[in-house]
Amino acid sequence: MRIDKYLKVSRLVKRRTLAKEVCEHGHVIVNGKVVKPGHEVNVGDELELQLPSGVRRVVIEKIAENVPAKAAAELYREV
């Protein structure tokens, strides 16, 4: 799954367009590398998001196309 879509589905970022912009500005790091919006992510990848609200570090636990808002937090684990 593309990183921009994963950020939206997991509710780490509210909108996919915002997720794309965050990636384009170099604020998303996957496994120690700055990535573009089209980067494919897999289970076990470590994400670092540099957002205005602060830095979040998570590990991808699951990948799903659609999940209810209540289950979105099950897709990742905070580090």
Score class of each variant (00 low, 15 high):
N66K: 15
A19I: 02
V9F: 14
E21P: 00
N31Y: 03
D45A: 13
E24W: 05
R57F: 03
L12F: 11
L47M: 09
L7R: 10
A71T: 09
K8I: 08
V13K: 08
D45Q: 13
E24K: 12
H39W: 14
A73N: 15
E65C: 02
A64G: 11
P68Q: 07
K14P: 03
G44N: 15
A71G: 00
H27F: 05
A72N: 12
S53N: 13
R16M: 05
V35F: 10
D45P: 09
K8E: 12
H39I: 09
V67R: 06
V28N: 00
V13P: 03
V55G: 01
V55T: 15
L51Y: 06
A73C: 12
E48Y: 05
E46I: 10
L7V: 09
I29K: 00
E48A: 09
R57W: 02
V55M: 09
V59C: 08
V9H: 08
E21C: 03
K62E: 10
L18M: 14
V41Q: 05
N31S: 01
I60V: 14
R57N: 05
V67Y: 04
K33F: 05
K20A: 11
M1H: 11
K36V: 12
T17Y: 06
V28A: 01
T17I: 13
V79Y: 09
V28F: 00
V22G: 00
R11W: 07
K33R: 14
E24H: 09
R56T: 09
V28D: 02
